[in-house]
Amino acid sequence: MTSGGLGRIEAGGVAVLDTPYPDAGAVIEATGSLDALAEAKVVRRIPLDGDAGTGLPAPIARPRAVWGIGMNYHSKAELTGRPVPDEPVLYLAAPSSVCGPGAAVRLPAGQTAEMDYEAEIAVVIGRTLDHAAEDDAWSAVAAVTAANDMTCRDIMKRTGWPVLAKSFPGFTPLGASLLGRDEITRPDAIGVRSWVRGESRQDSSSADMIFPIPELLARISRYAVLHPGDVVLTGTPAGTGQDRGDFLRPGDTVRVEIDGVLPLTIRVRA
């Protein structure tokens, strides 16, 4: 999605499309996928600059719901010495926390000293899932994108509520583009990486997940119905600020890359 409408990433730029849909979320909620955009007429082309994707809005600007999971990578469990969970540790974040690439995310001054980053694969639901079987769950995915599931670790410990630690304005950056499900040949091998201040921090893939994406979606659907346009954040590998004892501060940049998706970069401001 661009500031001028929906677009496809092609030939090193964005092909802006003639479509009745205001954003990608509307396409997915109406049709269940991004297929409706495949044959849309191109009205103009916009080149992508060196920091591809910066300045594009979040492709799903206001999800119906934002689900997340704690401790879903073996590397994270091993590093912390915590046992591998038998059930996913699930939570919701406020949809108002969503922002797009290039955003300046405010550090909640006076409330936290432990603002953290979490590179994650975000799954966008395309078809309703209600008590779904694991074998059926992947077919209900519309697309994936990059996410930075930002968290105030000290607020989490103090309140015991992930929703409070993760729902500050801009704390759920999404983007910069969507990768349709049919373009993903190996959902069990999607790369996820992060950089902070230009330094590599996380480098893993969905192969290391404790609850793979289809199983995770099926398990959530046992307790709550997942609707088209919902976003599910699938967990973060080892290498967060919590793991390193090095939290975010004003002026920091965080870059997240998911295979097949334009990079997602945000800046922390005072």
Rank of each mutant, 00 (worst) to 15 (best):
residue 2 T to G: 14
residue 3 S to P: 04
residue 4 G to Q: 15
residue 11 A to P: 00
residue 12 G to T: 02
residue 20 P to L: 11
residue 25 G to K: 01
residue 28 I to P: 02
residue 33 S to F: 02
residue 36 A to C: 02
residue 37 L to K: 02
residue 37 L to Y: 06
residue 39 E to C: 07
residue 39 E to T: 13
residue 45 R to K: 12
residue 46 I to R: 03
residue 46 I to Q: 09
residue 47 P to H: 06
residue 50 G to Q: 13
residue 57 P to H: 07
residue 58 A to W: 03
residue 58 A to G: 05
residue 59 P to S: 07
residue 62 R to P: 00
residue 62 R to D: 10
residue 62 R to S: 13
residue 64 R to K: 13
residue 68 G to R: 01
residue 70 G to Q: 03
residue 70 G to L: 07
residue 70 G to F: 04
residue 73 Y to F: 13
residue 79 L to H: 15
residue 80 T to Q: 14
residue 83 P to E: 04
residue 84 V to C: 01
residue 86 D to Y: 10
residue 91 Y to H: 14
residue 91 Y to P: 04
residue 91 Y to V: 08
residue 93 A to H: 05
residue 97 S to V: 07
residue 100 G to C: 07
residue 100 G to K: 07
residue 101 P to Y: 09
residue 102 G to C: 01
residue 102 G to M: 00
residue 103 A to W: 03
residue 109 A to C: 01
residue 111 Q to M: 14
residue 111 Q to F: 15
residue 112 T to L: 10
residue 113 A to W: 01
residue 114 E to D: 05
residue 116 D to W: 12
residue 117 Y to E: 07
residue 118 E to G: 13
residue 119 A to D: 06
residue 120 E to H: 01
residue 123 V to Q: 03
residue 123 V to Y: 04
residue 123 V to T: 05
residue 124 V to M: 09
residue 128 T to H: 01
residue 130 D to M: 00
residue 132 A to E: 14
residue 133 A to C: 00
residue 139 S to R: 15
residue 147 A to C: 15
residue 150 M to K: 10
residue 151 T to Q: 11
residue 155 I to C: 08
residue 158 R to N: 13
residue 160 G to P: 13
residue 161 W to Y: 03
residue 167 S to F: 10
residue 170 G to S: 08
residue 171 F to Q: 12
residue 173 P to R: 12
residue 175 G to N: 03
residue 179 L to G: 00
residue 180 G to R: 12
residue 184 I to D: 04
residue 188 D to M: 13
residue 194 S to A: 14
residue 196 V to F: 04
residue 200 S to W: 09
residue 202 Q to F: 05
residue 206 S to N: 02
residue 207 A to K: 14
residue 207 A to F: 10
residue 208 D to E: 14
residue 208 D to V: 05
residue 209 M to I: 00
residue 210 I to A: 05
residue 211 F to Q: 02
residue 211 F to M: 03
residue 212 P to F: 03
residue 213 I to C: 01
residue 216 L to N: 10
residue 218 A to T: 09
residue 225 V to A: 13
residue 226 L to P: 08
residue 227 H to W: 14
residue 228 P to A: 06
residue 230 D to K: 02
residue 232 V to L: 09
residue 235 G to D: 05
residue 237 P to M: 05
residue 237 P to F: 06
residue 238 A to N: 12
residue 241 G to P: 04
residue 241 G to L: 07
residue 242 Q to A: 15
residue 244 R to W: 11
residue 247 F to R: 14
residue 248 L to P: 10
residue 251 G to M: 13
residue 251 G to C: 14
residue 252 D to N: 09
residue 252 D to Y: 09
residue 252 D to S: 10
residue 254 V to H: 03
residue 255 R to T: 15
residue 255 R to L: 15
residue 257 E to Y: 10
residue 258 I to A: 13
residue 259 D to V: 00
residue 260 G to W: 03
residue 263 P to H: 07
residue 263 P to K: 09
residue 264 L to K: 08
residue 265 T to F: 08
residue 267 R to S: 14
residue 267 R to A: 15
residue 268 V to L: 15
residue 269 R to G: 14
residue 269 R to E: 12
residue 269 R to V: 14
